[in-house]
Nucleic acid binder design. Structure first.
Lengths: 90, 90
DNA sequence: TAGATATTTAGATAAATGTCTAACTATCTA
DNA sequence: TAGATAGTTAGACATTTATCTAAATATCTA
C-alpha cells in the first residue's frame, strides 16, 4: 500500500469536501451526492477513488451504501507531514 | 492563499521527492534536477508549481537559484489533517 | 564584450482526469 | 414478480497535466 493514491485522491476539492462531510458522520452515496452540483455517477467516481486510496470505507445495508472515514491513512499522512515541520538538529 | 494549490502540488511523486530532498538542505535547481531521470525544463516546471503553492522559496545567488522548504504551508496542512484524526465527542 | 554555465520560458504532444448521459446491477415492496 | 429506488459501470469528450525540444534570459569570467 502506498500513500501515492492518497495524495492523488486528496488533490481534488470535491473529494476533500466529501471527506469533510464524512467527518461528522457516515452518509449514503445519495446523501453525499445531494451536497454537490454534479451528477451521481461523477460523485460515485470520486467515492471510488477515495475508497481505492483507503481514505473511506463502504458498507451496503439494504438499498443503501454507507460511506465512512477510514482514519488509518490520515495518520500515515500526518506522519509524512510531520517530518517536514520538525527541524532536525545536526 | 488557498491550500488547494498545495494539495495539487503534493499529488505528484516527483514533487514530493523534491520536497524530501530539500528537507536536508537548500539546493540549486541544477542539483535538484541531477536527482531525476528527467530533463531540466521538466524539473523547473515542478519547482514552479511547488513555489506557486508556497511550499518552497527561491533565491538567486549569482548564476544559481537556490530552493529551500517553506514550512508554513506544511503546518497548515497538518492542521487540516489533524481535524480528521481527532475524534470529536458529542 | 564574447563565450560558457545555470535556469526558465514557449510551444508541442501524449496521457491522465473530471464530467456527462445511457445503461446496468442490486435491493425493497406491493 | 413488476415497478420503484439506490447506486455503479461503461463509454465519450473536453480540460488539465507532465514531459520533451528549442529558444530565451541571467550571470560570471577571461
Amino acid at each position: 500500500m502506498s500513500l501515492n493514491e492518497a495524495f492523488k485522491a486528496l488533490s481534488d476539492p470535491t473529494r476533500r469536501q466529501i471527506l469533510t462531510l464524512l467527518k461528522e458522520d457516515e452518509l449514503t452515496a445519495g446523501e453525499i451526492a445531494s451536497h454537490f452540483d454534479m451528477q451521481k455517477p461523477s460523485v460515485s467516481h470520486h467515492l471510488k477513488i477515495l475508497k481505492n486510496a483507503s481514505l473511506i470505507d463502504d458498507e451496503r445495508r439494504g438499498q443503501h451504501i454507507y460511506y465512512s472515514l477510514n482514519t488509518t491513512v490520515f495518520h500515515e499522512l500526518m506522519s509524512w507531514y510531520f517530518t517536514f515541520t520538525t527541524k532536525e538538529e545536526k
